[in-house]
Amino acid sequence: MTTSERRHLRNGLLFALPYLIGVAAFVVYPLVMSVYYSFCRYNIISSPVWIGLDNYRELFFNDPVFLKAVYNTLYYTAFAVPLGLAFSIGLAMLLNLRTPGVAVFRTVFFLPSIVPMVASAMLWLWVLNPESGLVNGLLRQVAGIDGPGWLADEHWSKPSLVLMSLWGLGTAMVIFLAGLSDVPQALYEVARIDGAGPWRTFRHVTLPMLTPTILFNLVMGLIGAFQYFTQVYVMTGGRGGPVDSTMFYALYLYRNSFYYLRMGYACAMAWMLFVLIFVCTAAVFASSRRWVYYHGE
């Protein structure tokens, strides 16, 4: 090793030192302990007791609430993520038409996504209030129908959360807008010369060019949806009601940790969540080779 190589190594490690310490203390150590706890009965007050695979066995064969939580989470993901993508692409396309006042519209659609989650959850709880909320009030006034109980009704609670999630699609929309501005204008010229109408131009030019952005937003959306927590905690007082219809994965994990003090069980749940996220993102990336188009490759 030359002197300068040695100096670089020393400086490199020195500059990264805070992070290296942090990673050992806040990532590596907890990861190892989390694996260990997941094979233990552990309530934080007394020391962990090794019970082998019992936690994992109970998850899959003996805990209907866990299965319900998986179902609820997948249900929410299956609707919120694709709808969110479709609507944010739609909004971005509309904004991209450069109508008058486009900056104002962009701000309006973006703002809800930066409202602190506690406040937006509180707000939607009130907007969806069955008796005095805005939505049912308008349904009564405009259409003359009695709206559903929304979050108070076990069949409507998850659709309510999906609806609320669409209000906050601003971040994805801004990313799609940036993606749209990267589409080379020449492609549109060619499409026009070939006589393609708006739909075919969208289908064969815009959409393929947006696929890398769709991939990014899809993966971020999936990861976010699997870990959905704050809104549902605030809106159901941490109970996941009615009738466990909003008992989401992360909420049930939280309840196991801090209500029932089943820390080992919660660690097993956390690892299953990691597997779920990992498998889904891996599947998306694997499939992306067939549907994501990288311009210039």
Partner: peptide, 14 residues
């Protein structure tokens, strides 16, 4: 890639 839930409990214990 690691969801925060995985490290949540060991960190709480520490």
């Amino acid at each position: 890639m690691v969801p925060y839930q995985v490290t949540l409990i060991p960190l709480f214990a520490v």
